[in-house]
Nucleic acid binder design. Structure first.
Lengths: 206, 206
DNA sequence: CGGCAGTTTGACCAACATCAAGTTGGGTGG
DNA sequence: CCACCCAACTTGATGTTGGTCAAACTGCCG
């Protein structure tokens, strides 16, 4: 019933409007959810890191594009049997409800970022998020699983603005860039300060 | 087990961090979910219209402020017994999961609006949303349940920008403003055009 | 050694924010 | 009943942030 699928970095996993025949959870790698407007403007609406779930029990068609941001390994279930299992074993549904509510809170946090934060704050927020969620290498180096363009699409900016503010944060001594895709936090307090305020979600467990 | 509570327009129903002892659904009126950053920047992250549910089964504390945008009537349940009922009758949980997934899709649509749409498109999108969801008066007049400032907080703009673009849409013959809190759609096609693209959510049922 | 995608940086520009007057309209008290 | 008040709204002048356009740089792959 359970099976694995892998996708190379950059590969589109599913398109908006596709039949949603499977649900899945991320085992390794990073996937993104995004939409594109007719004129090409693009907005990422979710970033799926290892352990995150993706799927829409009870829905026929995908509303957003799914892309493998890095090499990606998914643990998949066919949707129909999964839905049957949800009905048979209620606590699966309860667990899924709880995860969905958390995702909703994250989405709302992101709305604050997109609606009110400045470019520098948005980038600091993303770096802070990655520093918390991504497993750092032993030397404190953290992989950036996204290109400048993908970051821009996530933060509602252009890739030029993203690049500029990476440079600013580097010049300010807050982060160091090893390559353009790996960074290190030099001054965690200053980074936190630069985010413009914690996410509401972080208070959830308190 | 079920009881009703009403609040006058403008009244804060609950604050971020409050004990979440009840869950509720909106019977009449409009409520908003919002956060405020330390420096006062405010972002609304959800608008609750009649029939919408609010509450977080399984969560202790509210992460967002809740305010009555208009006079508001809520149908409330104490959280603990409600949670017990969810466990006892699984289809309540399934229904709630489905509603939460829809809300997540709406939130993601709003992220596109906040991240990528221009001021005029944001306002057209909100008017289009209200035209679809709010019951119009027999003569096609639609109530605006929000002040310019609340609209600005929802759309990630300032109230001046909101006011200016209302005027533009009026001058363009797309809408008419009866008072500043009631409008009529004069050219539905042009309004749709001005939104910059449909919400993904609208495709859900297809 | 190209070639090319991804990135950086600069110069300029446009959209929206900010600051600053006015205007409207409903409500209150004289 | 009118005068006043005040919050909500409108409109204008100016400033700032981030977008756009353009050019060069890096590093990886064939």
């Amino acid at each position: 019933m359970k099976f694995y699928r892998s996708y190379p970095a950059g590969k589109q996993v599913a398109w908006r409007g596709d039949e949603l025949s499977i649900v899945a959870s991320v085992v390794r790698g990073v996937a993104s959810l995004s939409t594109q407007m007719e004129d090409g403007r693009k907005q990422m609406v979710g970033l799926l890191l290892p352990s995150d779930f993706y799927g829409r029990p009870g829905r026929q068609r995908a509303l957003f594009d799914r892309t493998a941001a890095t090499d990606l390994l998914l643990c998949c279930f066919h949707r129909k049997p999964f839905e049957a299992m949800m009905i048979a074993t209620p606590h699966v549904g309860q667990r899924l409800l709880s995860m969905t509510l958390d995702e909703l809170d994250s989405a709302r946090d992101w709305m604050v970022l997109l609606g009110r934060k400045q470019a520098r704050e948005r980038i600091a927020s993303l770096l802070s998020l990655l520093a918390r969620r991504a497993a750092p290498h032993p030397d404190g180096l953290i992989d950036l699983p996204l290109t400048r363009e993908a970051i821009a699409d996530y933060l509602g900016l252009t890739f030029e603005t993203v690049s500029r503010h990476f440079s600013h944060l580097r010049r300010d001594g807050i982060i160091a860039l090893q390559t353009s895709r790996q960074f290190r936090v030099l001054d965690a307090a200053a980074l936190e300060e630069a985010t413009g305020g914690a996410f509401a979600e972080e208070m959830a467990s308190q």
